[in-house]
Nucleic acid binder design. Structure first.
Length: 839
RNA sequence: GCCGAGGUGGUGGAACUGGUAUACACGCGGCACUCAAAAUGCCGUGGGCCCAAGCCCGUGCGGGUUCGAAUCCCGCCCUCGGCACCA
């Protein structure tokens, strides 16, 4: 038999576009459904076969929702700032914008070929000045509210990308982008106070319908831990050291203190020098620690080592015990107070340290072999002895608080977001540095600090109004909102300088400007924003585009739109952004909520992560292995519908799956079969059995699409197809419903088939088939007959038949297994089984 | 080490709140069509024993609960993902 199917997919794509079949309605009585994909970076290689998996899923869902009379927002755009385009520019000398334009064109073509039903009128591009003026605006708002600060600190530096990185961009000591080993470098940075939102970012996870692993990763990343800060006095220095601990109940067991090499008291010790007998040893050790890379310093396999500060003693605030003080680099300078009380009996790390240097190890919590980290009865702990450690924990802190020697405290692993990059291809930061203002603010700074909690207001200094951000970062002045966007200047060289400054620093003309506050000479900030900035709010831009085609100030004009569309109902993308984009975007969104710009606390209500598509044989697809499959090849050979269907049928949406060419072919065979079925459509008499199967399938497909179980939805459709094949003829209405059920998966094919059986396009103008429960009911069911839980026989009975009515008949069915035994119990499950239990 | 997900035929994978394990597909084998091949159609396909009817065993391993366990409980093993000296 020849293949009768010959579908011009392009023609349908043009038809949809011309007719605006999938355009989002700007005003609508219908309920809304916001269905969002993580927008791609338009790379030079185009898409591979893994990308469309999520896009097809959201497309299926969008089609389905439209047919259920939702007004669906299903947009697409481009996350186009970032290193690949810039590196390409460095190599070829062409402007990154050029490469980006070409890549977008190519990627858009690829998406177009797949027949995805995006509303392209709302397309956005993060590198478009109309777009990034808003990215700059949000940053500016954060700056003004005091959420951005300038700091010179040792940050993660990628020597290959020649830029600083955020904590989240370092993956086990390596650069997330290029896998180069990350170094520590002291550079001036802009940092966003994401830690101020730590609790809300943590608590609000509860209300999100996200995959549990992603939520857990965010919880761990935020890493909230409750405990206490305890003060040990250091009489020799007339000073004190504060330490953070989650186990104040073990305070009596603190047999020494350990400070990180970065600790201020260590610096003090080095300054005082002569009073400490082993000063040179300490100096050496601190110097060595400083030169260690993060990777070396956090290497768990190495032995803990440190140096005692000889002659220095600290006093335990409760026991009064005098304990030695050590410096060791297993204690981190940036966490807690940069120093710890060491309890070798009840902490694995402290135990190792104590064992190595022969320090005191004494048990304070009974419970197991040392080191014992669990709970138990407190011992050797003065008045607290005998208490349960959990209770004792509270009592110890109560006492410390009474004596003003400590307090309850919470610590986070989350650190503030290093937000500036020393590269060209990113959003310029909309702030300038003015010497005059700097001096002016510094003259008054001590007064100002008293007002530091009064956020949101401005302060008058010599007739100039300064906002909190400006006061906290003396000299840095916000640009006027009306002057946004601040465009990227054209440059000769895109090469990063590697000195900690971006190539913008060489653009003398662009660099110098006038202070928007006092009119004196000023210089622009030359760092740019990180990759992640533009994706922190793009889901809002799509909504804004429904109000005005260009994105215009002020934000308040979009208020109603946001109320209408937020939050995003379903967000689909890869799991690799668990603590990057998904955390950053939540942070920005919460800020926008706080300033009254958006009506919801969270941007993305529901999240689904698609699994990876591996190459044939389950090997990861990669250019170097040469096993990358492009959607273009597949579409060329089989058509977009086959590709779409296969991507959805392949396996469970959230699991990793392996690509198989044979499997693709199977999808084509299925569509061929369905095509052939259409020839049997006619005015045949009512077919109850078929109707029953149809309604079961409607239910199954509907539920499965709602739950992202596309693979089983398709298998249900295949089963129904197989059943139709058995028929000599198929009722028209049944076949039409069948096409509708199939249409979200294979839109071109279904349009063609819809027309072939004599209907007017588009099939998508139709309502989704209505499920009728009474039609899906079975009159006959198969009842399984078991003996002692083993299936021995089965029988057809009318559905709803009672135990009494089948019992005797069933017994006969399995007589040979029970005849010599006594049935002591009979278990009956209606419409399912009857089980005879013998002695 | 800690946290999370998961181990089901030759393969991808189904199985609702415990109720016929292996749906749907791929592959493979046989047959039909054909000069032949491809395509297509039909039949078969977890393992073992058996002429057969039938029986036994089977969801990573070992126990348990239950009339009945892939599903629940306890103890292990393995794979993948994340975090990694966070006190």
């Amino acid at each position: 038999m020849d293949r009768k199917m010959n579908i011009n997919e392009k023609e349908w794509q043009e038809f949809w576009k011309k007719e605006g079949v999938f355009k989002t309605e700007n005003t609508s009585e219908k309920p809304k459904f916001y269905c969002l994909d993580m927008f791609p970076y338009p790379s030079g290689e185009g898409l591979h076969v893994g990308h469309p998996r999520g896009y097809v899923a959201t497309d299926v869902l969008s089609h389905y929702k439209r047919m259920r009379s939702y007004n669906v927002l299903h947009p697409m755009g481009w996350d186009a700032f970032g290193l690949p385009a810039e590196n390409h520019a460095i190599k070829t000398g062409t402007h990154p914008r050029k490469a980006i334009e070409e890549n977008i064109k190519r990627s858009k073509e690829q998406l177009g070929k797949m027949g995805l039903s995006y509303d392209w009128d709302r397309e956005i591009n993060t590198t478009d000045p109309e777009y990034f003026k808003w990215t700059q605006w949000i940053f500016l708002r954060m700056f003004k509210e005091g959420l951005a600060y300038e700091d010179t600190l040792p940050i993660n530096w990628c020597p290959s990308c020649k830029t600083g990185l955020a904590n989240e961009e370092v993956v086990s000591g390596l650069c997330e982008r290029c896998d180069a080993g990350v170094e520590k470098k002291n550079i001036r940075q802009w940092v966003l106070r994401i830690t101020e939102y730590a609790d809300r970012l943590l608590d609000d996870l509860e209300e999100l319908e996200w995959p549990e692993p992603i939520k857990e990763m965010q919880r761990n990343w935020i890493g909230r831990s409750e405990g206490a800060i305890i003060e040990f006095s250091v009489p020799d220095f007339r000073a004190s050291v504060e330490v953070f601990t989650t186990r104040p109940d073990t305070l009596f067991g603190a047999t020494f203190l350990v400070l990180s090499p970065e600790h201020s008291l260590v610096a003090e010790v080095l300054k005082r020098g002569e009073e400490i007998e082993n000063i040179n040893e300490i100096k050496d050790y601190v110097e060595r620690a400083k030169n260690k890379s993060d990777l070396e310093r956090t290497d768990l396999s190495k032995e803990k080592e440190g140096v005692e500060i000889k002659g220095l003693v600290a006093v335990n605030p409760l026991s009064g015990e005098r304990v030695p003080v050590w410096v060791a680099d297993y204690v981190l300078g940036f966490y807690g107070k940069g120093g710890i009380m060491s309890v070798p009996a009840h902490d694995e790390r402290d135990y190792q340290m104590a064992a190595k240097y022969g320090l005191k190890i004494r048990e304070f919590v009974k419970g197991g072999d040392l080191p014992y980290e669990g709970e138990g009865k407190m011992v050797n702990s003065g008045e607290f002895s005998g208490m349960d450690s959990q209770k004792g924990r509270e009592k110890v802190v109560d006492r410390l608080e009474e004596e003003k020697k400590g307090r309850r405290a919470v610590n986070y692993k989350l650190r503030d977001w290093v937000f500036s990059r020393q590269r060209y291809w990113g959003e310029p930061m909309p702030i300038v540095f003015c010497e005059e203002c700097c001096d002016r603010i510094k003259r008054y700074r001590s007064d100002i600090m008293e007002y530091k909690d009064a956020q949101g207001s401005t302060f008058d200094i010599e007739g100039f109004q300064y906002n909190i951000g400006e006061l906290r970062n003396p000299g840095w002045i916000s640009m006027q909102e009306d002057d946004l966007p601040l465009a990227l200047p054209e440059v000769e060289k895109y090469e990063p300088t590697g000195t900690g400054e971006s190539p913008l620093a060489l653009q003398k003309e662009w660099l110098s400007t006038v202070c928007p506050k006092c009119g004196n000479e000023a210089k622009r900030e030359t760092n740019t924003m990180p990759q992640w900035a533009g994706s922190c709010w793009y889901y809002l831009a799509y909504v804004m585009k429904g109000e005005s085609e260009t994105l215009e100030f002020p934000i308040s004009r979009y208020k109603e739109r946001f109320k209408e569309w937020m939050p995003v109902d379903i967000y689909v993308g890869g799991a690799e952004h668990a603590v990057l984009h998904l955390l950053y975007a939540r942070f920005w969104h919460k800020f926008l909520y706080d300033v009254g710009a958006v009506p919801t606390k969270e941007p993305f209500l529901k999240l689904k992560n698609q699994g990876l598509i591996m190459g044939e044989g389950g090997i990861k697809m990669s250019k170097s292995k040469g096993n990358v499959i492009s959607p273009d090849e597949v579409i060329e050979k089989y058509g977009a519908d086959v590709l779409r269907l296969y991507e959805m049928f392949l396996g469970s949406f959230e699991d990793d799956v392996a690509w198989s060419e044979d499997g693709v072919n199977g999808m084509r065979r299925f569509l061929d079969k369905v095509w052939t079925l259409s020839e049997k459509v006619g005015d045949t008499k009512k077919d109850d059995h078929m109707e029953n199967s149809l309604h079961k399938t409607i239910k199954k497909v509907t539920d499965d699409i709602e739950n992202f179980k596309f693979n089983t939805a398709i298998s249900a459709l295949m089963s129904l197809g197989n059943e139709m094949k058995e028929r000599r003829s198929i009722q028209r209405e049944a076949f039409e419903d069948y096409i509708k059920l199939l249409s979200p998966f294979v839109p071109h094919f279904c349009e063609e088939l819809w027309r072939k059986i004599g209907n007017k396009p588009s099939v998508f103008y139709n309502e989704w088939p209505q499920f009728k429960e009474e039609k899906a009911k079975d009159t006959l069911v198969t009842l399984v007959v078991q003996v002692n839980g083993k299936v021995r026989s089965q029988m057809e009975v009318e559905s709803g038949t009672n135990k009494e009515d089948v019992q005797e008949r069933a017994k006969k069915e399995v007589e040979k297994w029970i005849k010599e035994k006594k049935v002591k119990k009979t278990v009956f499950v209606k419409d399912k089984l009857i089980n005879f239990v013998t002695e």
